[in-house]
């Protein structure tokens, strides 16, 4: 087994990849991908931090299971909104929309 450091570093890098995706990508689908990467980073953190010498904490597993379910709901809603936006504009590019610039 490798140390906790590796997993913390991995989740930190995943988090920054998600942040980078949200900050620079101008495509609706890419933004949703960014959100999912952010969620995955947090989940990896929970699991890595709950695996200790003292034993395994089942609570963190429960947190991640519940959070996966809720996250899937958010992503489903985001995808249906994407479809509606696409119907109005026929494009997924944020720069061609009126208000979505930020």
């Amino acid at each position: 087994m490798i140390g906790l450091n590796w997993y913390l570093a991995a989740s930190a890098i995943l988090y920054s990849i998600g942040l980078y995706c949200l900050a620079t990508k101008r495509n609706l689908i890419k933004m949703i991908i960014g959100v999912e990467i952010l969620l995955n980073a947090a989940h990896l953190n929970f699991i890595a931090l709950s695996t200790t010498t003292a034993g395994l904490d089942p609570l963190a597993r429960t947190y991640v299971i519940v959070s996966i379910g809720v996250g899937a709901g958010v992503i489903a809603l985001a995808l249906s909104l994407t479809l509606l936006v696409y119907r109005h504009y026929r494009t997924l590019d944020v720069r061609k929309m009126r208000r979505l610039k930020w």
Partner: peptide, 17 residues
């Protein structure tokens, strides 16, 4: 997740995400 002794989470992550 499976390697970190979280097989439940692994299965659910595989199924959902």
């Amino acid at each position: 997740f499976y390697i970190l002794y979280a097989p439940y989470v692994a299965v659910i992550n595989l199924l959902v995400y």
